[in-house]
Amino acid sequence: MASTLQLENLTVDLGGRRILDGLSGTLDGRAIGLLGPNGSGKSTLINALLGFYRTAGGGARVLGCDIHRELVRLRSLVGYMPENDAFIARMTGVHFVRYMAELSGLPPKAALERAHEAFYYVGLGEARYRKLGEYSLGMKQLAKLAQALAHGPEMLILDEPTNGLDPPARQRMIHLIQEVRRTTGMRLLLSSHLLRDVEETCDEVLILKQGRIAGICDLESERRANRKFLELETAGEDTRFAGQLTALGCECAVLPGGRMKIVMPEKVEIREIYRIANRNAIQIRKLNYRRDSLEDIFLKAMHESRAPNAEQGGGAPPPTERAPQEAAHGGL
């Protein structure tokens, strides 16, 4: 299966300024988040991938399609939800989505059928005959999602899908994106400056900073790896307990006040710790999974990209390399 996104020294200049500077990397995740502060080049990257902006150098492949040579094929494979308002005010919702589906190549009858279905799918079924100009902001966002879905793309490109939404509408949009990810074979490319949106919907993250890659992070493996990192508060003789855990393959750090930090090897189950604690008459009063939130990863990537080597190549070491993070957690 082709990679979701392959960047090959992608460079984009706009208005005489370098906006994307030699982006390189491969992302295979089913749901990729583009993360970065405002002005970092997230939307520019999406626009370059869709052929809206001419590249100044390098190239990219989306679902294996070269953005220069196979643009028409690429556009027929993706559904795009832009960041800003994008609608024809005097058209009804269903008419508009049908129009877009027909332009993507669906015959008129199938396009109409799918437009109705897409509207029900995003939860706007009852409003589909209302003019788009009369929709609220949240409804317009959902209508944009409906038009991106209607022609059955293989990949959805969502540019700031929760922009301007109130908390319930945002939650609704996130649930929809999660559902699309969970229940369809579709791949996602989601751009957002909101860490929570990306964390809740994506399994791989490309972090941009000032037009360069500050980090590429596989959130799934990060989550799996972090699940083995424990913080304990115990009561009792913990030296022997720590020794037995070490014999089991764990790395332990005993801290004052009965606190312990443990990194468990992959094969060890957490019930083993309870068993050993029971054998040693140790009370486990508190047990926490300590995992990096995306915020930690993001901040780390932002910090690391300030290093001179990262500035030059746009290739800061990905946050999956755990050395700095472990040091921060007690030097294990």
């Binding site: 190549g105 015959p107 199938a110 799918r114 799918y121 079924g125 059955g152 369809t184």
Partner: peptide, 29 residues
């Protein structure tokens, strides 16, 4: 993707000829 099921399904039907697709714009116009 059926309305009553409120579930997504990909499209596997026919597509119109790419060369004449701009005529959709004319028809809607």
């Amino acid at each position: 993707m059926a309305v009553y099921k409120r579930a997504y399904a990909g499209y596997s039907g026919d597509h119109t000829a790419a060369a004449g697709r701009f005529l959709v714009l004319t028809r809607y116009g």
